[in-house]
Amino acid sequence: MLTKRIIPCLDIKDGRTVKGVNFKNLRDAGDPVELAEKYANEKADELVFLDISATEQKRKTLYKLVLDVAASLDIPFTVGGGIKSIKDVSLLLKNGADKVSINSSAVYRPELINEVSTHYGSQCLVVAIDAKKINNKWKVHLVGGKVSTDIDLFKWAKEVESRGAGEILFTSMDNDGTKNGFANDAIAKLSNQLNIPIIASGGAGTEEHFKETFTVGKADAALAASVFHFGKISIPSLKNKLKRQNIAVRI
C-alpha cells in the first residue's frame, strides 16, 4: 500500500542550514548534510531543501551542497528556491537532486512547467504554490508570500497539473507559522480536484495535525520545518502514532 510521506524542509542560506536547530548529538547543526542524514535515519520519506541565499554569487554554494547531499543521502530529495530557468533545473538535477521545486517563476512564465516536464519528466517537477485567503477566496502569492496576485489557487493548481507538474506543494500562508494545523479544507479540495499528489505545508504544530491533514485534508504528503528542527515532534514517534491510527506510513 502506498504510504503517506513525511517531509522535513531545511532552509538553506549560503550553503548552511538556517533556523535554530535544537538537536543534541549533532556535531554541526548548521551542516545540511549531517542534518539530512539524521532525518533519513529517522525514516523521513523525503527531504526538501529550500535555498534562500540572497545573491547569485552565494547561490553557487547550493550546487556544491546538492552534490554533497546526493553523495551521502539514500532517500529522495527536492531542491527549491530561486529556480528561474531550465538551465537552473538542469544543473541541480545533474548534481543529484531528484526533484526541483519551482514557485514564482512558474507564475511569471508558466511554459517553464511544460519545458521541465518535457525535458526531464513530470516525476522531477514539484510546483510550489503559496496562497492566502483574501475576502474568503484563496489567492496565489509570490516571492515567498511578499507579492499578492489575483490568481485563484484552484484554477492555478489545475493549470499547473495540465502543464505537466508531477506534484503540488501547497503552503497556506494563513496557517504557516501558527502551529494550529494545516489548511485542510483547501488541501482536500486540491486533492479531490487534481489527479497528482498534493504535499500539505503550513501549520504543523502537533502529531494530531498530521493525522488530520492525511484524513480530513486527503494530503498525500505533509511537509514541516520547525516542529522537526526544534525537536517538538520526532519523526519515529509521529510515524508510530499515525500507524496506530491506521494511516499507512513507512516505519
Binding site: 500500500m1 502506498l2 504510504t3 510521506r5 520519506d45 532517500i75 508531477g166 499528489p197 498525500d220
Partner: peptide, 30 residues
C-alpha cells in the same frame, strides 16, 4: 493519482535479488 509516487511495500519476493530483504519491505517508486 498518477504518478504513483512514494514508498510502497514489495511482496512475494522470488529472486536472489531479495536475499536478506524482508517481505513487505518499503521501496521508493515514481
Amino acid at each position: 493519482k498518477v504518478p504513483h509516487m512514494g514508498w510502497n511495500n514489495i511482496s512475494n519476493l522470488k529472486s536472489q535479488l531479495f536475499n536478506n530483504v524482508i517481505d513487505n519491505e518499503f521501496m521508493y517508486l515514481v
